[in-house]
Structure formats: structure tokens, C-alpha cells
Design a protein around this nucleic acid. Structure first.
Lengths: 107, 107
DNA sequence: CTTGTATATAACCATATAGTTATAATATTA
DNA sequence: TAATATTATAACTATATGGTTATATACAAG
């Protein structure tokens, strides 16, 4: 996963409400109307959070009658963790700097 | 690490520029004047990014003469990964919902 | 077909964010 | 001390974000 994609996924996670939603879904799938009383924010606010998490592929939705159940995408979450633990090598950037004589070699 | 603190740390990481800075520092410590030509943004912009990373304790600074070298705080980054991999248990929230008769038990 | 429940979307608002330029502060060097 | 280089801060701007209310859509049950 390149840094741009990783940053986008982290952005989806980098909000206290969405992060707790992910923690909740890690325990059990649930629907919007269950999340509303937990967070004390409006139903549209919860829907928007779910939409962001869905865009980041961190959750998947399944309609069951009038309810839409959201489940965590553990694969994706694992990918994010792995990407964070295995940051891309950037030596080439330092080589470029060296070529340009911009490398600061201190002491 | 509670979800609020984790969200704050993720926010610091959830930006393409800062994420790449972290990747660069993972290869080698460096100073602001080296980062400026890499990203092609202004020096104050880089300084602000470093300030955010420092606030999140993801980097530490060391002044060496006229330069300020920034190094990655691998411990902290590891903490973030671990926290993401071990999300807090939220069963109590579902128990509360059940008590309130708000749990949606579908099918 | 109408009513009620659940969810999504639209329009809006206040605040946060990532950049800019200008300037101040810190350290080196002549 | 004066001049130069590096970094940080201040003030500003445009855009993104997280919330709101109002409304539309989807499904279930009379």
C-alpha cells in the first residue's frame, strides 16, 4: 500500500467516533440505529461516518430488511497495520539529495 | 492507549506528507532543510508538520549547531500499531443497549 | 396504499487543516 | 558586531471535516 492510500485509510480511522465504531464492530456487527444512542449524535452524522468507513473499505454493509448491518473488514484493518509496520524504503530520496549536494552531513 | 489518544496519534499520521516524513525518518534522521526540497513545499509548512509529529510524540528533535535533526520515535509508532491491532473490548456498550431494549436482534 | 421505521442525501455552519508570505529567533561565520 | 543560514511563529486563505436540520428513499406492517 503506497503512502497516499495508507494516509487515506488512516484519515478514515483518525477520528474518535469512527475509531470507536471500528472497536464496536470488532465486537459485533451492528446497524446505524444502534450506534446513534451509543454516541449521542444524530442519525445522519452516524450515516456519514459509516459512509467514510465504507469508502475506505474498512467496513462492509449488508441490508437485512429495514436495517443495514455494518461489519468490520478485518483484512483491510490488518493491511493498514502491516503498512504502518512496514513503511516503504526511502533511500532513493536521500540519494537524490546527495546528488544535489543538499544532504546535511553533520559532525 | 484509549481511543481518543489513538485517534489523535492517527490524525498526526493521516496526512500523505507527514506519513512520508515518517517513512523518511525511518530510513535516516534528517532536518527541515533536507525535507523542503523533497516535498517542494515551503520551509514553514515542513516546520508545522514536524511540530504536529512532535506533539504526537512520533518524532524527537535534537539541535546540532544551526540544524534541528528530527528522529523517528519507533516506540511510539509501535504503540500505535499495537493499539490498532488490539482495539478495546466494547461488549459493555452492547449490554447497555440490551438493557435499554435498543439492541437489534435480526433473524 | 398508507403509515411507520431505518437509512441516506442535501444544504448549511463552525472549526480544523494544510498551505502561503512575512517576520522573529537561534546559531554560525566572517 | 554584522551578515548568513536554519528553524519557528504569526497572520492569512482556501478547503476539508464533523456536526446540525430537513428531506428523500427503502422496507415492513397494517
Amino acid at each position: 500500500m503506497d503512502t497516499n492510500r495508507l494516509a487515506a485509510a488512516l484519515k478514515a480511522l483518525a477520528d474518535p467516533t469512527r475509531l470507536k465504531i471500528i472497536a464496536l464492530l470488532n465486537t459485533r456487527s451492528c446497524c446505524v440505529c444502534e450506534l446513534v444512542p451509543i454516541f449521542g449524535i444524530s442519525q445522519p452524522a452516524v450515516s456519514k461516518h459509516m459512509s467514510r468507513l465504507k469508502s475506505a473499505e474498512l467496513v462492509v454493509e449488508t441490508r437485512k430488511g429495514q436495517w443495514v448491518f455494518y461489519s468490520i473488514n478485518r483484512e483491510r484493518l490488518k493491511q493498514v497495520c502491516c503498512a504502518l509496520e512496514n513503511l516503504p524504503d526511502c533511500s532513493h530520496e536521500f540519494e537524490k539529495l546527495a546528488e544535489q549536494g543538499r544532504l546535511v552531513t553533520c559532525e
